[in-house]
Amino acid sequence: MIITNNDWVLNKYKDIYNIVYINGTFKDVLIAVRDKLHIGHELLTHPLGSSVKPSETPFKSVMITDKKNNTSIDSIYMIENAIITYDKFNKDKLLSISDKVIEDLKLIDLTVLQSALNI
């Protein structure tokens, strides 16, 4: 299952994977992931997908298991740390990014996700 707020990911994979599209922020995605982990899904990709920092991109895609198992403490720990990390970055400047940059950021998010899907 892919939880994302990136419409490029949605459009590319909606017929192949189970996608939860979040019409919201990077943090909304992390929170949605956290909620899924609490009911037994497990993380498949790291929630801080890349070195592009939360202060630099509004887009985030995270892959988790379709199946629910016992709650994974490791997954919970990782998502909580990701949320803490997200919160410490100053995100004021994200509001003023241009359309070209938005496209680039969507591409980066998509390719980082692809690097996990292709293996």
């Binding site: 997908g49 890349s50 070195s51 591409l107 980066i108 390719t111 980082v112 996700l113 692809q114 690097s115 293996i119």
Partner: peptide, 19 residues
Amino acid sequence: LQSQGLMHDTYVYGVDAKQ
């Protein structure tokens, strides 16, 4: 070695380290 995808890659003898 950083190996997370576009713009995050490192190559060893020409091979993408993530592979």
